[in-house]
């Protein structure tokens, strides 16, 4: 039995541009939706990856974000609610040669499909998960989601939500994801960088993208995206550099044992006292993932954006292939006649 034939990238083909990834379908997200920016950044970075268009597959579930494949001129499947990660797992297991992307949302990926998300992460398929988090159910017109803040008033929670929200980074960390990053729709450059990093990572990449739903949850992430508040509320993580933030770059995070604290560089603290970000540090990544304070609380930590953690672990599809190769080496190519005959037979004349 042969594996499915796959095409080698055609080196002679002219380089692709973002336009080559645009389809003829009318984009039907609400005007002003954060999804437009994410779509544009994905279309922008894909030509830079050098992956032939026909080798890219984008799989989504259900929800506003899951319309994404229709607007990408690649292979794509708009599957069923919550199952994109499982469809993608089967595809990647059987076709390791493909570049497989999952586009999902906070409802699709963390509520109805939460189970498949964590299992994809622990198995470490080389798949890029883009989780558009808008903290609301948009397509069903405004119910709270598993990432909505407590006490949120929505159509299904007139007296306020009593659900405690998920912390997506901590959840992915708990599922042993090998790559975790956070970005936002309104910072194209950062988002492009994070998309490229997700793609470059061999193994499951979990990229949470804060995305504004201007109809049902407008301004949910304003504090992180608006120029006026962003410098004080956002801390951009860069490998090997100290955790510094603030309008005047005058604040930093220092670790007191395992306890992070905000220090003022003007108070005699120097950059060398600060927490130096190390993407490979599993324990510090746990602390970063827990810097998830409600920004309304005084003295809260800024919200980290960037690559929280990256590590190497064998991918599921590689190990699956290795077992097949091992079986072939040990037993030789399967012989159907020998299989059907088995060990014990008799003949009737």
């Amino acid at each position: 039995m042969s594996d499915v034939a796959t095409l080698e990238p055609n080196q002679a083909a002219p380089a692709l541009t973002a336009k080559d990834f645009v389809t003829d379908q009318e984009v039907r997200w609400c005007p002003g939706c954060g999804d437009y920016s994410i779509l544009k950044q994905v279309q922008t970075i894909l030509p830079q990856t050098g992956i032939p268009r026909e080798n890219i597959v984008i799989i989504s579930g259900i929800g506003c974000s899951s319309r994404f494949p229709y607007y990408m001129n690649t292979f794509g499947m708009h599957s069923i609610h919550g199952r994109a990660t499982a469809v993608a797992s089967g595809l990647k297991a059987s076709r390791p040669d493909l570049s497989v992307w999952v586009v999902t949302g906070d409802g699709d990926g963390l509520s109805i499909g939460g189970n498949h998300t964590i299992h994809l992460l622990r198995r470490n398929f080389d798949i890029n998960i883009l989780l558009f988090n808008n903290q609301i159910y948009g397509l069903t017109k405004g119910q709270y989601s598993p990432t909505s803040e407590e006490h949120k008033i929505t159509k299904s929670t007139p007296m306020g939500s009593i659900d405690h929200p998920f912390n997506p980074m901590a959840l992915a960390m708990g599922a042993d994801a090998t790559f975790l990053a956070r970005s936002m729709d309104r910072d194209p450059k950062h988002l492009q960088a994070m998309l490229l990093r997700s793609n470059a990572h061999k193994g499951a990449s979990f990229l949470e993208i804060y995305q504004n739903c201007n109809i049902f949850n407008d301004g949910a992430f304003e504090i992180y995206t608006e120029k006026s508040s962003k410098p004080e509320e956002v801390i951009f993580l860069e490998h090997g550099l100290p955790l510094i933030f603030g309008t005047n770059k005058d604040k930093g995070i220092k670790l007191d044992g395992y306890k992070p604290e905000i220090v003022n560089l003007a108070d005699g603290h120097s950059a060398s006292d600060l927490w130096i970000h190390d993407e490979k540090d599993f324990f510090k990544a746990q602390i970063l993932s827990r810097m998830f304070d409600n920004p309304a609380i005084a003295g809260h930590f800024p919200r980290p954006f960037g690559v929280f953690y990256e590590t190497e672990r064998s991918t599921y599809e590689d190990q699956m292939k290795m077992q097949i190769d091992e079986a072939l080496a040990k037993k030789g190519k399967g012989d159907l006649n020998a299989l059907l005959q088995g060990k014990e037979t008799w003949v009737i004349e």
């Binding site: 039995m1 199952r83 797992s89 076709r95 699956m320 079986a327």
Partner: peptide
């Protein structure tokens, strides 16, 4: 047991992942 026939078996996390992973594989030509 028959990986030497190129067979891929995937013990999924639930029944839904079992069928949807098979759909993914079929889509890819398996």
């Amino acid at each position: 047991r028959y990986k030497n026939f190129g067979i891929r078996t995937f013990q999924a996390e639930d029944e839904i992942a079992a069928i949807t992973s098979a759909i993914g594989a079929s889509y890819g030509g398996s």
